[in-house]
Amino acid sequence: MGDFLGFLFNIDMLATWWPRILGGLQITVETVLLSCSLGFLLSYPICLARQSKSQLLSKLMLSYITFFRGTPLLCQLYLVYYGAGEIRPFLTSIGLWWFFRESFFCAVFSFTLNTAAYQAEILRGALTSVSRGQTEAARSMGLSPYRIARHVIWPQALLVALRPLGNELISIIKASALTAIVTLPDLMGVTRIIFARTFDFSIYLYCALIYLAMTEGIRRLWNVIERALSKHLALARGGGAFSAVAVMPPNEGAIDA
């Protein structure tokens, strides 16, 4: 049994390789943070366009969202990375090749487009969860559209969106392991390199534990944030009289899609 545990966890590995692992971790964190924040910025315009009155615009956004949610991220990454390589003369002529030349930018580009599609749908679900009556009530009280959005809609919508957005962050962390396939030495990438040097299986388990620490950490942090932000709702739920305020629809993001 001790033999088997030794096979699973070889401590010497960490002592030798931690600088490489940290380097990989840094790339993973950079990729995830950049993609997720860019995706968040993109998601609101996409969500607006999706609900716009222009048929063309909303159909276009619907196809965008359907494509990026309906195909594997790995396929999208290949398409961007190797597809860009194929049309290099074109990309050079429009001055974009420097961007697609770098595997880091290719990865961030495809992850951003992917997560923007998911986040746009999360936002849409959250915005529609705020009942129409509230907008009408706010308007009848004479609030400007800006103040309605700022003080009535967004605080509630963001609270509803919080959990699915956290799940999306977690799934991008997990998906970022794919970047190793397009030459980026991220956490998964350096793990593969170290494994190839040492043939020591325990490095995969250490790598798993690091990912686990990140995803579990975020999950718990999110629980704390959510509890802090929804204190008023908990009260309302308990009180009963205002329970109608607690609009918390069962969101589809509850499992990290």
């Binding site: 860009a84 390589g85 030459t183």
Partner: peptide, 18 residues
């Protein structure tokens, strides 16, 4: 240094100029 999973992929990236 850039490492690829397959042996044919670096050749494609050489052709594309990466």
């Amino acid at each position: 240094y850039k490492g690829y999973p397959g042996a044919d992929e670096p050749n494609l990236d050489l052709a594309s100029g990466r």
